[in-house]
Computed example of a mutant assay.
Amino acid sequence: MPALNSKTTEEIALGIRRRVFLHTMRHNGGYLSQACSAAESLAILYNEFLNLGAPTLPGIPLPFRGVPSATNPDAFTGAGYHGPFAPDYDRFIISPAHYALVIYSALIEIGRMDENALDHFNKDGSSVEMIGAEHSPGMEVTTGSLAQGLSMAAGIAWARARRTEPGKVWVYMSDGEFQEGQTWETLAAISHHGIDNLRIVVDVNRQQCDGAMSSVLDLGDLPARVESFGVPVRSIDGHDLDAFRKAVASAESGKSLMILANTSPFQGMDFLKRRFPRLHYVRFKSRDERAEMLKAIAGELGLDPVEIERNAAHG
């Protein structure tokens, strides 16, 4: 379908970082490092790779209407922001639910959600949850603990293949999910069943909630481990858009593809290096620390810290 915006992928990536940063400043906390690492991959997925229909949900997200069931006709899933389910369209499964703020920002940047949608973030009764669930914008399923998204995506892809639907299934993951056994079981199943309509993009930022991945459970040679399960891998610089394009174009006929996007958890916000390795969720320890971070990162992102504070005061 035609693009819902006229921005370049680079502009969308910068817009995602800016939006998450401004939200974090306004609410004294947020998932900043995920915006640093994931901005390019989400921007290029939404703006160039995913074949999605027009949104079926309103620009201002609906309040939560209960979980989907045969007796709840009012329930919905956040997949409506990816358009209708149709054989020709792709499906996009988002596994790391804590990336929700980054996902919402991406949906706004590409024109699939209203500019003011984040006004409903993490409020009682809202579907715009801090940790995304199946009703949250962009989310089709509740992934609960990490590592459930890949298995759900693989199941959907397998079913679509059996129905001979031309649309692909894309899934977005974080590298922390490779510390979970379910991921490896799913890779074995993908290979065994010959699932070839699945595209997997992994944000390899080497961070998780307890700190650096290497200090919690080191993954070793991740590309080699994945390939040993029979799934082709492309390991790229996750901030290099041309590398993404080449990786996607290199998909082999009859096989799924995993793109390991090696990223930095402080890309575009070098000031966050001071927080390493505690980068999972950024809170401010004092008013002075917030002011220092505001001035430093606003400058990196091309924003005016004085204007940010003025808007926050009147917001």
Rank of each mutant, 00 (worst) to 15 (best):
D175F: 03
M152L: 14
P166G: 10
S215L: 13
L222G: 09
D203Q: 11
S151R: 01
S151P: 00
M152H: 06
S151V: 09
S151W: 02
S151H: 04
E165S: 09
D196C: 13
V201K: 10
Q207H: 06
A189I: 14
W170V: 09
Q207S: 13
T186W: 05
E185Q: 14
T186M: 09
G194L: 12
G211F: 10
M213N: 02
V202Y: 03
I200A: 01
L187E: 07
G167Q: 12
V171S: 02
T183M: 11
V201N: 06
K168C: 10
A157V: 05
S191L: 08
L198Y: 04
Q182W: 02
V169W: 04
E177V: 08
V201Y: 06
G155H: 03
W184G: 07
S151C: 11
I200G: 01
Q208I: 01
E180N: 08
I200Y: 01
W158V: 01
G176H: 03
P223A: 09
V169I: 13
D221E: 13
L198C: 06
S215G: 01
I190S: 03
G167R: 09
N197E: 12
H193Y: 15
V204L: 12
E177M: 06
L222M: 13
G211Y: 07
Q207M: 15
M152W: 00
Q182I: 15
E165F: 14
R162S: 12
I190K: 04
C209G: 00
E165Q: 15
A189N: 11
K168G: 07
L217M: 15
W158D: 12
Q207A: 13
D175P: 05
T164P: 00
A159V: 00
G176I: 03
K168P: 04
P166T: 02
H193S: 09
F178C: 08
Y172L: 13
R163W: 02
A161F: 05
Q179Y: 00
V171T: 13
G155F: 00
S215V: 07
D210F: 12
D221S: 08
E180Q: 14
H192A: 06
N197L: 08
